[in-house]
Amino acid sequence: MKKLLMIMLLCSQLSYAQFTKAELIASGLTCSMCNLATQKQIQSLNFVDSVIPDLELNAFHIYFNQTHEINFEMIRKKVEDAGFFVAELKVSYHKMSSHIYSNPLLFFENSVLCIDKYNAQKDLHIFKFIDEGYLTSKELKKYRKLKQDMVLPSNSKDISVLQTKKMYHVVEE
């Protein structure tokens, strides 16, 4: 119970400022008009500071502001609103000592990352999302087994915290 309270207390003080940028590749794009529509959708998010496109690769470099909470689900939704899909999403994360890491989970205010092979020694991490909606169907199949093998803690207190947060599965790049 003590551990649980500590986690909840610390989580309430955390922010998403540690995520500075993301690299997103969209699938199904046809033309620069489609790219522009996708960029405008992503740019409309309040936690996005700027978006730099790479039209040749259908990639978008998304820079986050420090004032709003980052919602990865909303990024996916905006790409789909433009009529396309996320083929790859990678985020850059700067380790903060205040963040709770309980193997394999890293806790944030409203979300939790379930990380495969987290290297606690590193300060800068790049996480690639492997959940449905963040990969092409081919890539999703590739990561299915890995995702199933990610063992969640058996501690029931941790699980009750998880129920209040959105969980994403990621792999360290």
Binding site: L29, T30, C31, M33, A37, T38, K40, Q41, N58, D81, A82, G83
Partner: peptide, 17 residues
């Protein structure tokens, strides 16, 4: 990449939300 903004017909794709 490619184009499907057909002139006489409509594609199955939609314009963005």
């Amino acid at each position: 990449k490619s184009q499907e903004l057909f002139v006489m017909t409509e594609p199955a794709s939609n314009m963005p939300a």
